Structure formats: C-alpha cells, structure tokens
Computed example of a mutant assay.
Amino acid sequence: MIQHQTSNSCGNYNYNAFLYSDISYSAHFHKNYELIYVLKGTVELSVNGKPDVLKPGEMILISPYAVHSFAVDGKSKIWVGVFSEDFVLSFSKANSQISYSKFKCGLKQEAFLKEHLFFQGQPELYLAKSCLYLVCSECLKHAVAFDMKSSDEFRNRVIAFISENLSDEITLGSTAAALGYEYHYFSALFHRCFNMHFKEFINMFRFEFACEMLLHTKADIAFLAVECGFQSIRNFNRIFKKFSGHTPTEYRKQLQSED
C-alpha cells in the first residue's frame, strides 16, 4: 500500500530535517519537496517506480506527490529535508513538470550547504531559502520530467486532486470527469497505478488527515468528520476504527495520555 504522509502535506513554511542511518521508508508521497543527501555509504531508492542508488556526496530532489521509497543500512548515513513549496515558490511554479533530480554539487556549493543546511534542525528562514534555491539551481541541470506517456503524470494528478478536494464528496466518476478521463478507462488506470480500490484509497487519505487533526487541533469530532470529508460521525468512527483499531475519541485520549 502506498502511504500518504499527511504531516508532510500541510502547513505554510513546513520544514523538517533529520539525520538517518539504518532506516527504510516504504512507498509514500506527500505535498512537500524532499531532498536526500548522502553523507556516507549508499542509499537504495525508487521514485515513481524507477530504482536508483545514491553515493556519498550525491543528492536527489523529489517533487511534490512523487511516490518514493528508500532504504539505508547501518553503515550509511543520510540527511533528509522535507519542505513546503513556499520556500522555493518561484522554482515550484515554473517547474511543475519535474519528477525528480539526482545530482552532485560543486565543492564550493556543497561546502556551503554542509555548513548552513545539512544538519538536524531548522536554519533561519532566509538562509534556508538561499540554500534551497541553490539546490534548485543545481537540480535544473539534471532534472527528470514526468513521463507523460507513463503512469507518472496520471498518479500525480490523481493525488493532487484528492489532496485539494478531500473535504468534498469524491467519487471515482467525479474524479475521472474532473481530470478529463472516460470512467472505465480511468478505473482501469487507477487500479493499475495504485493496486487498490478507489474508495479504500480515499478512506486512507481521510483517515491520515484525521489523525493529523486529532494530534494538532482540539476541534470536536463532529467538525473533524465534516472537515475530513466523512458523510457522518458514524461513518467516521467506522472507517477510523478499521484503520487504527480505535474510534477517533479513543485515539485522541490515547494521544493525550502519552503527553
């Protein structure tokens, strides 16, 4: 199953950076950009079904909604930064066709990034912007565009549409129409790309969005049900319990007990 990381899909100037070793993430996507830089060892990764390996000093910039996964063994170490598009808005608006870019900076650029960006924590806003625009400049020299003849573009359009309309009623038919596809062709293409039923995919999105809202807001359950696109509190409880084993109320109490 492809996971939607909602924590990396919301908020203005959302930025998180971590140092990882001996870790793996299965196929997932989010609205934010993701930058991976290899400090030592190697990283096996896949972006939109295309496998690759990163070596020391190499980095990859992964665009919003691209499905990706990676694995790092105990002998390797990487820096991973995930940031919303408002950090690099001019680049984002002009280069929405880019799927990902794998590259290696010059020595001076790499030294600058090591000093001001490649650490666990958040740099000052304008310094972060300058570093990330430097990355974007290098990215453009090696960027790989979405393959319009493959499932890349379809997958990203579907994910973007669902993410932006989650609180509305979304059906397979309405999504196909909004994206300009014939119903049966869209259905077949969706199953081939995501390997799951459309309704299950929507419910997964809504569940993950609800988890984020339960964690970060004090909104009541009735409001959350509507905001996440569920038809009723009863339906909200049923689907939430299916994915988590708990009702939304039980889940929130569990979160509060862990604080």
Rank of each mutant, 00 (worst) to 15 (best):
53 V>T: 15
155 R>F: 07
131 C>V: 06
105 C>L: 15
67 V>S: 05
154 F>S: 01
142 H>N: 14
67 V>K: 05
93 K>W: 11
112 F>E: 04
80 V>W: 02
145 A>R: 07
81 G>Y: 05
169 E>H: 13
104 K>T: 15
56 P>Y: 03
94 A>P: 01
64 P>Y: 00
129 K>D: 04
129 K>A: 10
146 F>Q: 11
54 L>H: 04
127 L>P: 05
89 L>Y: 15
54 L>T: 01
168 D>T: 12
98 I>N: 01
113 L>D: 00
102 K>V: 09
82 V>F: 03
122 Q>G: 07
145 A>S: 13
83 F>W: 07
49 G>C: 11
159 I>Y: 08
77 K>M: 13
98 I>M: 13
124 E>P: 10
139 C>H: 04
86 D>A: 08
155 R>M: 15
51 P>V: 06
97 Q>H: 12
53 V>A: 06
148 M>C: 12
74 G>F: 01
69 S>M: 03
137 S>H: 15
59 M>C: 13
117 L>S: 01
60 I>M: 02
124 E>A: 15
170 I>K: 04
84 S>Q: 07
64 P>I: 00
168 D>V: 06
120 Q>K: 15
67 V>N: 04
90 S>I: 12
99 S>K: 11
54 L>S: 02
50 K>N: 08
125 L>E: 13
67 V>L: 09
141 K>Q: 09
47 V>L: 02
92 S>P: 05
97 Q>S: 12
84 S>I: 03
156 N>E: 10
128 A>L: 09
79 W>I: 08
163 S>K: 11
117 L>G: 01
125 L>M: 15
100 Y>Q: 01
145 A>T: 05
65 Y>V: 03
90 S>P: 05
115 E>Y: 02
154 F>T: 01
140 L>R: 09
169 E>V: 14
133 Y>E: 12
133 Y>V: 09
64 P>V: 00
120 Q>G: 05
110 E>P: 11
126 Y>D: 13
85 E>N: 14
55 K>G: 07
105 C>R: 00
88 V>L: 05
136 C>E: 04
139 C>N: 09
130 S>A: 13
51 P>K: 11
138 E>M: 02
74 G>Q: 03
57 G>Y: 07
131 C>A: 09
113 L>Q: 00
65 Y>R: 07
118 F>N: 00
88 V>G: 02
61 L>H: 06
140 L>N: 07
134 L>T: 15
117 L>Y: 03
108 K>H: 10
150 S>N: 14
103 F>G: 06
114 K>H: 12
128 A>R: 01
157 R>F: 07
113 L>K: 00
50 K>T: 07
58 E>T: 05
163 S>P: 04
140 L>H: 04
93 K>Q: 13
133 Y>F: 12
61 L>A: 09
170 I>A: 05
123 P>H: 03
50 K>V: 14
108 K>T: 08
90 S>G: 11
101 S>K: 03
168 D>Y: 11
93 K>T: 10
169 E>Y: 11
129 K>I: 14
113 L>P: 00
46 S>G: 03
110 E>C: 12
80 V>H: 02
133 Y>H: 12
69 S>R: 05
127 L>Y: 08
125 L>D: 12
169 E>N: 13
